[in-house]
Amino acid sequence: MSAPRRRCIAFGHRALASIQRDVSEDILRYLNKSPENQAAGDTLKTRLGAFLTPQLQCLLLHRIAHCLFVKGWTRLAVFISRLNLLVHKVSIPPHSCIGPGCLLPHPAGVTFCGAAGRGLTLYSLAVCCPLEASLDGPLETAPRLGDRVTVGAHAVVLGPITVGDDVRIAFSLRVDRDAPPGVLVVSRALRVTMRSRPAGPPACS
């Protein structure tokens, strides 16, 4: 609670209108994410349907909390952020700044503490946080992501690092150093060997 007030100048998050703008860009991102969603078209009905998904609801709650935090209503912001954690199981502290057009396909278990540009994608159980155990520290110790960054499922971005634009981080990875723009970070977890099982009962529970 003693965290100092910080100004969020990147996307004008001090204005209440930024919530509406960001969430509408999130909805557009959701409607364009796959051919099936694109085939459904961009009508009022599909927009409302997208808005009522947990993906968009948790982003809406975070955007409200962030706007209140930047305005100085810290306690209310923390309360809404806790509500978000309770309802959607997504842990985004109110001071973390996310640009418009964010996509969280599976919100449960996602942790995000840091700053991100436009078009962020966090797959299931992606974690971006500072090296400290607490998520309430200053934003300078947390990762700073550029525009259109994709963080894969189970990947972890850790510490005061800068990740450039258009970086894609693959499945199950720990990134703790700066990533230049446009790279694809791959993990050894995708390198799998196979051999036939020795005779005996199958390893099933």
Partner: peptide, 13 residues
């Protein structure tokens, strides 16, 4: 997890 792949397509539909 069980689902679409990260990287080649953004679709998990």
């Amino acid at each position: 997890g069980l689902g679409g792949e990260v990287g080649r397509r953004e679709d998990i539909g």
